[in-house]
Amino acid sequence: MELIFVNILDGLVTGLLLFMLCSGLTLIFSMMGVLNFAHASFYMLGAYFGYEISTFVGFWPGLIFAPILVGIAGALVERYGLRRVHQYGHVPELIFTFGLALLIEEIIQFFWGKNIMAYDEPDILNFVAFSIAGNAFPAYKVFMIFVAMGIFLVLLYILTRTRVGLIIQAALSYPNTVQNLGHNVPLVFMGVFGVGTALAGVAGVIAGPVLGTFPGMAVVLGSIVFVTIVIGGLGSLWGALIASLLIGWLQTFAASYNIVIGDVLVSIGFTRPENLDDSALRDLWTLTVSQIGPILPFLLMVLVLAIRPQGLFGKRES
């Protein structure tokens, strides 16, 4: 029972971390209609910038400055790359971000090499916040939860309660009208792209010490981020939050319990073959849920798209 509670907390941490990435991605998508394949690469940039800054002046300045640097990099990419490709249509845009992801990974290896970086959480948070039945819950994870919550509330406030949010929301649906009203829509786009990538940068700085800072970290997370916003519904902030939490818990619980698929099959009426070695499906019988945990989100996505192409909370189809 205690373990379930611990798993709920762990899943919350994973889900909220995912949300920090998805919130930026979904904002960018709803504004510009482009699925940014390089989004996880900006997350990786955040982690590396954070690490580099932390080796000089410690973790906390890194938490402030690394996301700013990532945001500037993102804004530059929008201004000089995406805006140019935008005129060719959506497919070249998507392919551009795809190529950008490759390029960023290579650039990172060029400067930092291929080793895993020794990026650690700050000493001040390096203690056990509380324990449940022998399971330590590090203070750093509590900190992660609060940061993610804070970001969500601030975003929600900006988008729904401020003038900037109003313009952004208007530019989403009627960019030309907003332009005619005298607002600089390209600037808004650049700003949103910068802020979105900066959010990914924050996630990188925070996750780097826990999940490891290495050149493959974007790939590990990359496709899951799309899956999440596609499930949640493209362009929906609430959808992104709920899908992130759903996937966080799905993965945590799948990894936590060794349910054997064979047992499930038996319990729903199949008979186990006598001699497993002869069966072509022998691997299916010995498979556990934790073995397939990381691919469950993809299964979920295919199901959701086949049944409800606009995602759980999406209002329109892309």
Partner: peptide, 23 residues
């Protein structure tokens, strides 16, 4: 007390596995 396999190179966060090991 435990014998399991996890997908290679795809696990982002090993915490759930760690919890099982502790438990």
């Amino acid at each position: 007390v435990g014998n399991e396999l996890h997908p290679i190179g795809k696990v982002k966060d090993f915490t759930p596995y760690a919890r099982k090991i502790i438990a």
